[in-house]
Amino acid sequence: MRITALAVNTFREEVRRKVFLFLLLFAGVMIATSWIFSFFTGTEEMKIIKDMGLTSIWLAGTIIAMVMGIRMIPGEIDKRTIYTILSKPISRTEYLLGKFFGGALTLAANTAIMAVVFMTVVAVKSHQVEPPQPVDFRLLGQVLLAYLQFCLLLSMTLMFSTFLTPIMNGAISLFVLIVGNLSDTLLDVIKLSKNMVVEAGLRVLYYLVPNWQNFSVQDALVRGDEKVALAYVAKIALYGILYTVILLIIAAQSFRNQEV
């Protein structure tokens, strides 16, 4: 009940802060993409629409998740709104979870709206192009994975915000995002490394940082690869949820002893 009240309030805050204006930008990009590239062949045009759409969803969600996670708790401490909340019978863990679920709800609403716009454009264009193509609903699997990635990013920035300044949080989160997107390259570098210390350091980095590449089946989907299996999406979804839970446990431990 208390976590729900906090989550709903956080969602309301983000809505009233006009976070959803991002959606207008997204819708604009989608609609523009659907007619700008109409001079390509049907198959090429559909590939571009899918690619642009999924990338836009990923970019919008990533930015919203990062900004929310970095700002949520320090913003409340700065404005001292946290005083009147934590002076109620709310544990620090409940407060943190309320904030997280409020953010996750905002991201869900955001991603869902973007997914509807995206799938509508895909459905309309699939029938317009020559030759007409079937609508690939597996694209929604990628949207789901992207959403779980946003939640993971939200929990990570929330965790960092319990002991880092917003600027440090932004810098480190961005670093983790970049390194996590280069996980496969990092593995290659580890194999090539001749220095034991460097290799050990890189290995620690490889295992600590979430492998964001796991969350992307975009290339395969855009290519029309039939091998993208539901089992893989489920496995990565579980990976994302587990990682998120672990980060939230660390965040709760860290926040429990923080003075506000």
């Binding site: 208390r2 309030n9 001292r80 005083y83 002076s87």
Partner: peptide
Amino acid sequence: RYDIAFVPDSPYFYDFLTAEELVRFHGRLF
């Protein structure tokens, strides 16, 4: 804290809420 109330010295409340929403939100926290 079920039996304590706190009125801070400066207006530290969510300014995106209305008075009714603010009191309701705080009530729900109890």
